[in-house]
Amino acid sequence: MRRVTAFNLFAIVLGIVFLYLPIVVLVIYSFNASRLVAVWGGWSTHWYTELAGDAAILSAASISLRVAFVSASLATLLGTLAAVALVRFGRFRGRLLFASMIYAPLVMPEVITGLSLLLLFVALAVDRGFWTVVIAHTTMAACFVTVVVQSRLVDFDMSLEEAAMDLGSPPLRTFLSITLPLILPALAAAWMLAFALSLDDLVIASFTTGPGATTLPIRIYSQVRLGVKPEINAVCSIFIAVVCVAVLTASFAAKLTAARGAPTRL
């Protein structure tokens, strides 16, 4: 029988504390009234009000959100097509190269992805800015989307599609009215993952960005290099709060749909 020993419990608790302690400290210190980051000067929301007047940070945040929205949507489209091709089409010509190009970016160091895309844009003489960052993020995130959607398609009940096709439904219509609704939770999860990856990325964006397209991580990085700053604590806390709410909502929603969709997966 499975039994949770004291050692198991110890490992789990220590692991969770290790993962969350720095984040909790960061959030607490964002409410520090003192200008000196290491000295606790009482509770205050001073740095949050300060933030509301910081035009550079706000514009960087808006650029980041727009890049993340567009690239997550593109990546979900491309990644889903790739997943369908990999799971459903069996062995087609060039499959090995295709699969390699899907899995390689997952572990490719970001510095290399960023450098290579920048050199492409330079070779094509493209002006770097919003769209070059979008393209770079789409390329990186599409591979993650493929893996997520693929895992859903693999344990998909094919007989539903076959029934629709036997009844004369053309493939595209079958996909839109049977397959798509059933894999929608996976698509939503994949879109969120792509969105988060784009919002998070510093290295690839630094290589592929241009004037007027400074994303939030680039902005934060340029400030943080010089040391810890209370305003940045506040930015990061807001970011963490947004992410936590989004992820918890999503996992709750996924649980609901999974409970509802359970019989169809048998």
């Binding site: 692991g15 969770i16 993962l19 969350y20 720095p22 984040i23 400290v25 960061l26 210190y29 980051v37 290491a38 988060a196 919002l199 998070d200 510093l202 991580p217 934060i220 990085y221 943080v224 040391g227 810890v228 940045i232 604590n233 990061c236 970011f239 963490i240 992410v243 936590c244 989004a246 992820v247 918890l248 996992s251």
Partner: peptide, 24 residues
């Protein structure tokens, strides 16, 4: 599982920055 995955969703940069706070 959600607890282990959650920090992964918050920015990489922010989590490193959080350690700068602690280790200074």
């Amino acid at each position: 599982v959600v607890l282990v995955v959650l920090p992964f969703w918050t920015s990489f940069l922010i989590r490193i920055y959080a350690w700068m706070n602690i280790l200074q």
